[in-house]
Structures are given as C-alpha cells and as structure tokens.
C-alpha cells in the first residue's frame, strides 16, 4: 500500500466523521425536528407512557404484597372479580353520579359567579376575591371544613336549621344526606374553578359585540344566549374537560367528610383504588380498578375533544 493511498484513506475517514459531526451540529430540518422533540418525547414516555403500560400490565397480575407470594399472571381475573364486587359497582355508580351532579352544578354556579364578577360595578373585587378563596383551598381542607359544617352536634348547618325552626339532620348517618352534603361541597369547591376559567373567557369577548347587539336591538337575555354563551363555548368545553376528569377522580372531599360511609354508601372509585392499593396492598386488583378509571376518563375526553373539533370544522 502506498503512502498516498493510505493518506487518502485517512482523509476519507476524517471526511466521513466530519460529515457525521456536521449533520449533528447543523442538521437538516427533519433531523432537527426529531432532535428538538426528543426531550419532550422521552419525558412523556417516562412519566406517562411507561406508567400507563406498567399499570395495564399489573392489572393482569395477581399481585398482593400482603400474601408475600410472587406476582402471577392471571389474565382478566381481576376484571372478573370486579364484576362480582358490590363495592366496586357502588363506588363506580357513586363516582358517575357525583360527576353527573357536580359538573353541571358547578358549571351553572360558576357561570353565574363569573357573570357577577364581570359586572362593571364596585362589587367586582369582593366577588373576585371570594372566587379565589375556595379555589386556593386544598381539597382535603375543604373536606375537613365541610365535615365540621355538617357535623350533627357541632356543625353550623344544623345550628342554622335549628335557628330557623327546622329540625337538624344527622347528615353522615344517612347515605342520601351524606351524598348530598358531599355533592354540595364539591360543587362549592369546583364552581370557583369554573368561574375563574369562564371569567377569563368572558374577558376575551370584545365589549363592542355587546354594543353592536345593543344597537341591533337585542336585550340582555338575548345577548347572553346569542353572544355570551356561543362565544364561551370553547372555554366551557375546556373547563368541563378539566372538571369532569377531576370529578371522576373525586377522592379528598368524600374521604375527609365520610370516609365512604355510612358503610360504603358514599365511597368513590378513587377511594376504592386507594383502599385496595395503599391499605390492602392488593396491587393487581387496585391496578385493574385504576384501568377502569383511566378508560372512563379517556372516554369523557374523547367526547369533549370531538365536541371541540366538530366546532372548529364548522368554522
């Protein structure tokens, strides 16, 4: 081999390396795109995709830390157990009921509060402040506070009822009353969140639209239904997605207020998952329950996303 040919070889190798390096340092658009997306993809994979896959896998296992036995693949046995589990059905039904009651409830109350806070009067700031406080309060705090409000002996609710001449109730002694108290608390807590999002939405509606409607001859009610509501729709849908998913995951407030009682009559799916995984250490069954909740949340999100994209398509 001659010196020159060897030199050429070396030069060639240097050249390919430089090409590789420059591709890395000065990538074309596709490579650059992939490179820039990579950190986000890795992060999402690590914190979302991996745990969800692991959860799915665990839901097919018989894995109970209390048994000391190693994990065993049992297929759909956990899901089958669920079908026969009355507490699961009760908790799921309670969760759906809480969602169906508190989400529209919080929307209506929140919309009202937001409209009130958006009025051009001086009462605006106390209303806005009172919106912030329930929102800033941790959920478990709210649960604890309302648990005392509804306490049969020391609670303010019974006290007020007695003062106006009505008999008080042992709220947490009756499944219906306890459930009502929980729904009331969740609505109270959630409507401030709704109101804040809706208020932000309201403020993006130009005032001139209302002036144009004034000139066009539409009254306040008509303006609300013809302008405010349609223009708020995207905001409301987003608020509903957040709220519905949070409602499906309801845990803190019933946990603090009734602990699921009396009996298991006010337990929610999230509480039942927590109980099975954290208290009973039955990770297999707990994961299967969590998969059900995951599917419920995904269904709700899909419906809402469809609502949004349907709207944009029409635009």
């Amino acid at each position: 081999m001659t010196v020159t040919s060897r030199l050429e070889q070396v030069a060639e190798r240097v050249e390919t390396r430089r090409a590789m390096l420059s591709r890395l340092l000065d990538p074309d658009e596709t490579t650059l795109g992939a490179l820039l997306l990579a950190p986000a993809a890795v992060l999402l994979g690590g914190v979302i995709v991996y745990p969800v896959c692991k959860l799915l896998y665990t839901s097919f296992l018989d894995l109970s830390l209390t048994s000391g036995a190693p994990a065993r693949f049992v297929g759909l046995a956990n899901f089958q157990q669920m079908l026969e589990d009355p507490v699961f059905w009760q908790a799921t039904w309670n969760t759906i009921l809480i969602t169906l009651i508190t989400v529209p409830g919080a929307l209506v109350v929140g919309l009202g509060l937001a409209l009130l806070a958006n009025l051009p009067f001086n009462i605006r700031w106390p209303v806005r402040l009172s919106l912030l406080i329930p929102w800033a309060l941790p959920l478990s705090f709210a649960g604890l506070i309302f648990a005392w409000f509804f306490h049969s002996e020391y609670g303010v609710v019974n006290d007020v009822l007695n003062r106006v001449g009505l008999p008080g109730a042992i709220w947490f002694n009756s499944p219906r009353l306890a459930f009502a108290a929980i729904c009331l608390t969740i609505t109270w807590k959630a409507s401030s969140f709704m109101a804040m999002i809706i208020l932000a939405g309201l403020q993006t509606i130009p005032r001139s639209l209302y002036e144009a409607a004034d000139v066009d001859g539409a009254g306040r009610v008509r303006q609300f239904f013809e302008i405010t509501l349609p223009l708020l729709k995207p905001t409301i849908v987003v608020a509903l997605i957040f709220r519905t998913i949070a409602a499906l995951q309801t845990f803190d407030i019933p946990y603090m207020m009734t602990g699921g009682g009396p009996g298991t009559s006010t337990a929610t799916l999230a509480m039942y998952i927590h109980q099975n995984t954290v208290s009973f250490l039955d990770l297999g069954y707990g994961s299967a329950l969590a998969v059900v909740m995951f599917i419920l949340s995904m269904c709700v999100t899909a419906v809402y996303l469809r609502m949004i994209s349907g709207r944009e398509g029409a635009r």
């Binding site: 001139s208 639209l209 144009a212 004034d214 000139v215 066009d216 001859g217 013809e226 223009l231």
Partner: peptide
Amino acid sequence: PRERDIAMVFQDYALYPHKTVRENMGFS
C-alpha cells in the same frame, strides 16, 4: 340604543364571530 333607530359601524366592526355573514346582517 335599540329604540333610537340608528345603526352603527364600529372601528373593529364588532361582527359576531360565530354567525355567518347572513346571520350577522340579519340579526337586527
């Protein structure tokens, strides 16, 4: 305004973004 029998063209036009041109014009 609605009883003054006037019409107004606004600086930002104030068209109703969710209505078609026909609905905008026909609203009043």
